[in-house]
Nucleic acid binder design. Structure first.
Length: 426
DNA sequence: CTAGGGTTAG
């Protein structure tokens, strides 16, 4: 194209640019070079490069390009803003959704369905459900994407029930859901224990001959597993022609959560033989299985292999599983050591697990340190004091029970307006 | 004459 000067034909150059920027086998870096060597790129080219960067490792570049484009006076269209919004979401720029919203008005694009849907999605990603819902309610026209976006927005923000209510409304308004809609709705069924609805949807999917691919299959397995229908989940899981790590995770965690620790571990080993690489979620499932079954040695081995064998850096929830596992098995000292090893500050959840272990195995010495740490994190939380007081009482240490009572009273007074710490001490 | 959105795991 360069030799034949076709590169100067904007239309032909656009096709080349779009291949480089968007295709799986393309090269975003090369696309950028092409773009930079183009004089007066047209809107299509700007849009293509913004879109290409939106899902890249550097979505910030999309925003930068948009700003550059605006400085040159180029006016965005209905293809520009959806990808700009996607880029903002991928950057974690939550406030920028509102900024783009002002541009939607500025350029008179507020009736473009693609744009309003993308805006809604942007508000959902930045956890502004009210903002998203307001857009939804004010829309003059809605399509399948609109409904699916709003429903998934609720589900992903832990409002499964609201999502189900909206799904009902969707059906009443005669919109026909598709596989994407059902994936979200099934996730809601999993979160709010709706086995019957989940089963009805499964039946509907079958009668409508909707293809059960990886995503929908995973959503179905998750729904059954979470609702305790482990056999149904397992049968479906076994039948799936394609599975990814999420599929394995719902099955492993489902088994672990319903007392089938051994089966969860077996599944983990099968995954080990295959092409699937476990991730942090897999290990939450496997370690919690060990915890339920009291498999200290196996659990310790798996925990130690996480980083070494699988390259998965343990997070606080994995330490949490281990503290729980060790603590339940009476290895309170080892559990305390493990918490000290962590690079982060211990949170109340993990300290609570350790305190429970102290209580069950009557380890007052460690419990005193744990209670002190919990108190430092949550001064208003007196639950830990109550546990410790119970332990003192059980050991017949009444003097210490009284001491704790004084400390609690003092903490309460200290919070009372008008009183300073010095007043209390005096 | 070029192009697009929503979906699964703790």
């Amino acid at each position: 194209m360069i030799i034949s000067s076709r590169i100067h034909d904007h239309f032909a150059a656009s096709r080349l640019l779009s291949f480089c920027a968007l295709s799986e086998s393309g090269d975003l870096h090369y696309a950028t070079k092409l773009f930079n060597n183009t004089q007066n790129p047209n809107l299509f080219m700007w849009n293509t490069l913004i879109r290409g960067h939106a899902n890249s490792q550097i979505p910030e570049k999309s925003v930068f390009l948009y700003v550059q484009m605006r400085k040159l006076g180029v006016v965005p269209n209905n293809h520009t803003l959806p990808f700009l919004l996607k880029a903002c979401s991928n950057c974690g720029y939550s406030e920028s959704c509102k900024q783009v919203h002002t541009h939607v008005f500025k350029f008179g694009l507020e009736l473009e369905l693609h744009i309003v849907n993308a805006l809604m999605r942007g508000y959902c990603v930045s956890t502004d459900l009210e903002g998203a819902r307001q857009l939804f309610d004010e829309m003059q026209e809605r399509n399948l994407i609109t409904w699916t976006t709003m429903i998934s927005g609720y589900v992903q923000n832990f409002c499964a029930d609201e999502g189900l209510v909206l799904f009902n409304k969707m059906i009443l308004e005669d919109f026909e859901p598709n596989g994407a809609t059902f994936a979200s709705v099934l996730s809601a069924c999993a979160d709010s224990d709706c086995l019957e609805l989940g089963e009805r949807i499964h039946g509907f999917i079958k009668t409508k001959n909707i293809e059960i691919g990886v995503i929908l299959g995973t959503a179905l397995v998750h729904m059954y597993a979470k609702n305790g229908a482990i056999m149904k989940a397992k049968t479906l899981f076994d039948k799936m022609p394609q599975r990814n790590i999420a599929t394995w995770n719902v099955m492993i965690c489902g088994l672990a959560g319903h007392g089938h620790a051994q089966e969860a571990l077996t599944l983990f080993q099968e995954l080990d033989k295959g092409q699937i690489i476990p991730n942090d979620i897999t290990f939450v499932g496997v370690l919690s299985a060990c915890c339920h079954a009291g498999l200290i040695i196996v659990g310790r081995e798996i925990f130690n292999s996480m980083k070494r064998v699988y390259g998965v850096e343990p997070k606080i929830e994995h330490y949490g599983c281990m503290v729980d596992l060790l603590g339940r098995g009476g290895k309170v000292a080892e559990a305390e050591e493990l918490i000290k090893e962590m690079t982060w500050k211990a949170d109340v959840v993990i300290l609570g697990a350790l305190l429970a272990a102290c209580k069950n195995h009557r380890n007052i010495e460690v419990a005193e340190r744990v209670v002190r740490d919990i108190q430092a994190l949550e001064p208003d939380n007196h639950g830990a004091y109550v546990v410790l007081a119970g332990m003192y009482a059980e050991a017949g240490r009444w003097e210490d029970v009284r001491g704790l009572r004084t400390t609690m009273r003092r903490a309460k007074l200290n919070k009372t307006p008008g009183w300073s710490k010095a007043d209390v001490d005096n």
